[in-house]
Amino acid sequence: MYVPGNLHDVQHVLIDVGTGYYVEKTVGEARDFFKRKVEFLTKQIEKVQPALQEKYTMKQAVNEMLNQKIQQLAAVNISQTGTVKA
């Protein structure tokens, strides 16, 4: 949605600092705040990424084992009954 508007004070802005709180800062202070925020989030992503990759690898291994077990059970079921059951 687009709503036209005019800024009364272009030297000060409100920034969302989290959990619904807003702080009035100058444009320069706001720029510095967001620069620090981006750096912090980038560091957090770098910390979490190796754990995420490990979890993904573990998930793939579990999926492969489950598929093998399902195939084994299907093969046993076919050999015992001679038909395929869903």
Score class of each variant (00 low, 15 high):
E24L: 05
A51D: 15
F34V: 04
I45A: 09
Q11V: 00
V13F: 00
Y21W: 10
R31A: 10
Q49G: 00
Y22E: 14
V48F: 11
Y21P: 00
P50D: 14
G28Y: 05
F40H: 13
A30F: 01
P50K: 09
G28T: 07
K25D: 03
P4W: 07
L7P: 02
G18H: 03
T42R: 10
E39L: 06
L41P: 00
E29R: 04
R31D: 11
T42L: 05
T26Q: 03
K47G: 08
E39R: 07
K47L: 09
T26D: 09
L41S: 02
Y21F: 10
V10E: 15
V23A: 08
T19F: 11
F33R: 03
H12K: 10
A30I: 03
F40R: 11
V48A: 13
D9T: 11
E46Y: 10
K43E: 15
R36Q: 11
G20P: 01
V48T: 14
D32Y: 05
G18L: 01
T42E: 14
K25W: 08
G18Y: 03
P4E: 15
F40I: 05
A51E: 15
A30M: 00
V38D: 08
E46N: 12
E46Q: 14
K37G: 00
Q11F: 07
A30V: 02
P50R: 10
R36N: 11
E39N: 10
V10Y: 07
F40S: 10
P4G: 12
Q44L: 08
V38I: 14
F33G: 03
T26H: 03
L7N: 12
H12T: 12
T26G: 04
A51C: 08
G18V: 05
H8N: 14
D9K: 07
F34Q: 05
L41V: 07
K47S: 11
D16P: 02
V27T: 10
K35S: 07
Y21Q: 13
F34H: 08
L14Q: 14
T26Y: 03
V38F: 12
V13Q: 02
K35N: 09
A30G: 02
V23I: 12
L41G: 01
Q44S: 08
G28R: 03
G18F: 02
K47I: 08
V23K: 13
I15D: 04
T26A: 02
E29I: 00
V10P: 06
P50I: 10
E24A: 11
R36L: 03
Q11T: 15
V23H: 04
K35I: 10
V27Y: 00
Y21E: 15
E24G: 06
E39S: 09
G28C: 01
Q44V: 12
G20H: 04
Y21I: 08
L14F: 14
R36A: 05
Q49A: 09
Q49P: 01
Q11K: 11
K47W: 09
P50V: 09
K47N: 13
K43G: 06
